[in-house]
Design a protein around this nucleic acid. Structure first.
Lengths: 132, 132
DNA sequence: CTCCTTGCAAACATTTTGCATCTGC
DNA sequence: GCAGATGCAAAATGTTTGCAAGGAG
């Protein structure tokens, strides 16, 4: 069960928190808005509230359990943080999101910020694409 | 004057549109939210409305005159589109935004999406940094 | 003169917060 | 039993839209 991760985050192990974490874990590689989760979790089982989903996602993000993204759609998108860093490809026609990683680019980014006199804390790269 | 660019976008050359475009042109390399523009333009001269700023910025974005960005702050940020593509470095402590471009990364991005069977429409890279 | 544009206020969409109730430990 | 968590409704935030009045061509 996912209880340990929640406890390690300093949070009580409650049903809504477990539900959110398990829902995300059961849908690896997928990306959900808070409202997506609300609608789908309501259908599947629970009587969770939307405000709780927002609160829980924020707590999980602070704890490093989930990642939050802002693509161009206005609403934030969440996914489980598996620890493996990756960037995103968004199909502008379908809205489909895929993941990728490229070591060469990662190294170039380090070099760029060092040249500016900074250290890299985080980064975000999104490629907007169409099918050929 | 900036009137020609507005006319070329198929829009009437009006005072609010001129004011926004000139304000951006007079502050090159800076990045503004709609509300930033509203507040600062009200102070400087005009009696422009916030809704007009949003409408004008959207029209200018569609016309390719300005670029719109979503960093992690919730509100959209606009800057003049000079035609020279660049990416962004955001200092997480100060909020300061700098611009950079790296040809090698641009080429790698093309290669990545081609390997996925896509064509690259647009992309966005933001490096979040701290001073060393 | 006509159509497009404006400013204002109201509507909207997303996210956060206040509060009484409920739950995990 | 108590501190913390929940659901709901209300508030807050950022952006868009309806509309009567104003302005460009």
């Amino acid at each position: 069960m996912k209880g340990i991760e929640i406890k390690n985050a300093g949070l009580k192990v409650t049903l809504p928190r477990l539900s959110v974490l398990e829902y995300l874990a059961n849908h690896p590689g997928e990306h959900f808005s808070a409202d997506d989760l609300f609608t789908k979790m309501r259908l599947e089982n629970s009587d969770i509230g939307l405000a709780t989903i927002y609160r829980v996602l924020n707590q999980f993000e602070a704890a490093g359990l989930v990642m939050k993204h802002q693509f161009e759609n206005g609403q934030a998108i969440y996914e489980l943080d598996t620890g493996e860093h990756h960037d995103h490809i968004v199909d502008v026609d379908t809205g489909e999101v895929k993941e990728f990683i490229n070591e060469e680019i990662e190294l170039l980014q380090q070099k760029i910020v060092k040249d500016f006199g900074y250290q890299l804390i985080d980064h975000k790269m999104v490629l907007y694409v169409k099918k050929i």
